[in-house]
Design a protein around this nucleic acid. Structure first.
Lengths: 342, 342
DNA sequence: TATTTTCGTGTAATCGATTACATGATTTCC
DNA sequence: GGAAATCATGTAATCGATTACACGAAAATA
């Protein structure tokens, strides 16, 4: 019952060779119609299932693609993965998940493991920018495995990426806060060696300058993406001589921390302080005091990454296509920053 | 540069056979120490990487395991997957993700695809209980692929499962609401053909009876796990002759919907109404009016599932071990149900 | 009818690694 | 010193499917 049926078993039963069986099952036009039907019928009757491992070995394609993310239990990454999976499912690809936990060592290990496992492509959000790990990336490219960055990208020749316009996201959020009457807008940034945080910061700065506000170095604080970090940063901001009247955070979690800290100190939001975050995590919408946030359309980002992969995978590897897709960010304005009553 | 190096290449360079190379790399004790060292050094120098596909074909083990969930972009499932990945990573397994989107057809397809892809095991949370799909499960078992259910389980001989004690979870939450002084507790349930929802309901009912309260059929409403469904159900509950004074929801999202609907109608929570949810989604903690919820320790559930898999995978397939792990639920009491001031 | 095409299928190599068995060289033991 | 044991390596089959090439039979052509 549990014995695996191979094309040899089918061949034996029909007194033909495995080659004929293989050809019949693959609709090779050279096979007589009667033979083809007989083989297909017999295969079905014997409950034959093609051995994908054998196929993978022979063809050199595993039909697996690897996805590397810092962690999977964040709505953003999970949604991207969902998009990738949905887009690739009809094409018969399986999605292998790896987490780096923000460790570069782990990122390198994952890259090697995936290449060793002969995945047909890798999509990833970079954990950090460092020079040491370049060998891992080089390894991927040397093996001609299509590599696509999403969200957190890295500048490597011949590598495609799907990101959002983070500069514009930062700009939009900041402009909105200015429009609400805020004049001293602080910014909670992330690791600026990562483009996403750098660009959100630059967008923030440009919005200030474009609107005649002064940029105050003190008002930019680097935080981890956590509630606790947001609280601490807010405490630090409140201790400044020139206190801010708004906070644009590159992280929704830090934005939440800021709100909690401000409320604990009896500041009123949005009256005393306006707050905006980034990522549009589900909770920002659910709060009674809903939080304004920049949406990154993660589902679309995942689907787009998958599409870019599909475009690349069949090209001869001599022609390298480097595609840079930039999605538009969308500002979701909510209570945490809406002074104007409707 | 990008040419793949095989053991034959190494053998040729050293004027020995591939068999010797293979044995040297696998630390076969029959190999002379000098040869072993030479082979290992040469392999490293040539940047040899073992071809996992060839190994998989020969050994019949792919070192991949499959995980099937209704969707990945929910904190609960993402966390379980995180747990699985973390636990399996040190053992060299890769995790393949499949989503059913609550479709039984998709569930069957996923099961077949994973078996065809020769995964070494499957962990899944069942999408629905139906008889039609039994053939897909039978197929898995016939092929002797270890199968482990987590959270949403199904009764199949020889299949292990990792769940939480949903009865106890329902009981704890309900008991807590009673302790807070609620006397007419409504319940938002899910599809009761799934054990998890059935058991939460039974726990709820038992808690009522154990505490001298009457069970009122009208107070049990079946909803989907969504904010909208929670709102609708609440509207229906408020229209009843005997209005409830508390809601225990099997879903955090429905609980949130209930809260929003109640607040829209100017009911005060927790004074007029106490609300408790299930799953301990991140937002329940983040809300200003934080929501009481039953934690399912998803990370632990994932790790435990992985451990059960590891225990099973090496046993001879004649001895079938069926292990039922039941984790303890933990009630997180928050503002939405705390009348008593501390 | 003789010759060339076409057709359908068989033969055998291939993908890359593992491993039972065979073999020759060396060592051990009486 | 010769038989037996041990050691290190080679030979070749195997996992299951694909496919270039070969080949005989039938069909088309002259």
């Amino acid at each position: 019952m549990s014995e695996k049926v191979t094309i040899y078993d089918i061949a034996e039963k029909l007194n033909i060779t495995a080659a004929t069986v293989s050809r019949a099952l693959n609709n090779n036009p050279k096979i007589k119609e009667a033979t083809r039907e007989l083989v297909i019928k017999t295969a079905a009757a014997m409950n034959y299932k093609q051995n994908k491992l054998a196929l993978a070995l022979k063809s050199g394609r595993s039909n697996n693609i690897g996805v590397i993310v810092p962690r999977i239990d964040s709505n953003f990454f999970a949604s991207v993965i969902r998009g990738i999976e949905e887009e690739l499912y009809p094409h018969g690809y399986q999605v292998i998940i790896c987490q780096t936990h923000e460790s570069i060592k782990r990122e390198n290990e994952n890259l090697h493991t995936l290449v060793d496992a002969q995945v047909d492509g890798i999509m990833m959000s970079v954990t950090g920018i460092s020079n040491e790990n370049d060998s891992a990336f080089r390894n991927v490219l040397e093996k001609n495995v299509p590599l696509i960055f999403f969200d957190r990208s890295k500048h490597i020749d011949g590598v495609s990426s799907v990101t959002i316009n983070d500069f514009k996201g930062g700009y939009l959020a900041t402009k909105h806060l200015i429009d609400e009457g805020c004049r001293h807008i602080a910014h909670l940034s992330g690791d600026q060696s990562l483009d996403i945080f750098k660009n959100r910061f630059l967008g923030y700065k440009q919005a200030l300058l474009d609107n005649g506000l002064t940029f105050n170095e003190e008002h930019v604080i680097h935080v981890k993406s956590s509630v606790e970090a947001g609280k601490e940063a807010t405490t630090a901001l409140l201790a400044l001589k020139t206190q801010p009247d708004a906070i644009f955070s590159s992280s929704d979690f830090a934005a939440l921390g800021a709100i909690q800290e401000l409320q604990a100190r009896n500041y009123s939001i949005p009256n005393d302080f306006c707050v905006a975050g980034f990522s549009n995590e589900p909770f920002t919408k659910f709060m009674e005091l809903s939080i304004t946030s920049v949406d990154q359309s993660p589902l679309e980002m995942g689907k787009m990454s998958a599409r870019v992969f599909l475009e690349q995978v069949d090209k001869t590897d001599t022609i390298k296509i480097e595609k840079k897709v930039v999605l538009a960010p969308e500002l979701h304005i909510r209570k945490s920053s809406t002074k104007t009553t409707f």
